[in-house]
Design a protein around this nucleic acid. Structure first.
Lengths: 74, 74
DNA sequence: GAATATTGTACTGTATAAATTACATTAAGT
DNA sequence: ACTTAATGTAATTTATACAGTACAATATTC
């Protein structure tokens, strides 16, 4: 899972700490998600994306290796 | 987190088992996510949505109570 | 209504998301 | 250079996502 949380934060000029507080989660969780230390829950990911007024796909995307189980052709 | 996986499955006429196999996960996981027994990881959720050719938001959505940490007005 | 497919449920085990606390490093501002 | 804010990192703990196995309860089809 890739993400551009850092870019979104930069646009909004908000720190990891401020984002964490705004979303009711820990700064370390934001940091870990942002640096891809781990994959967030769908709830955390949706909240992060919506905080920035973006869709999930605008903030998070699958890496190539994670696309091995893709949509069927038909 | 709400979801309409069951509807998407019905449209594609695919069983929990078939979906699970197609996505490389267990049928119980599909069942648990579908019946909101637990919230999936962002990776699992994205894969499920994309399997149906849908965006994350078209398949998963926040419940009212989960929107307390929403996007700021500005 | 019997056979089969599908879904629900329960249990155990493992991996990991996330909180908490604490401290170290880097960046920014004065 | 000093101070303060921001970020990185590490350790511990708790909660939970998910796999695996097994079996029960519904649907579906013949």
């Amino acid at each position: 899972m890739e993400n551009n949380i850092r870019v979104q934060r930069a646009i909004k000029k908000i720190s990891q700490d401020e984002l964490a507080i705004a979303l009711g989660m820990s700064r370390q969780a934001i940091h870990a998600i942002e640096t891809k230390k781990y994959i967030p829950s769908a709830l955390a990911a949706l909240r992060i994306a919506h905080y920035f007024g973006k869709t999930m796909e605008e903030v998070f995307s699958l890496e190539e290796e994670e696309k091995k189980f893709a949509a069927p052709l038909s």
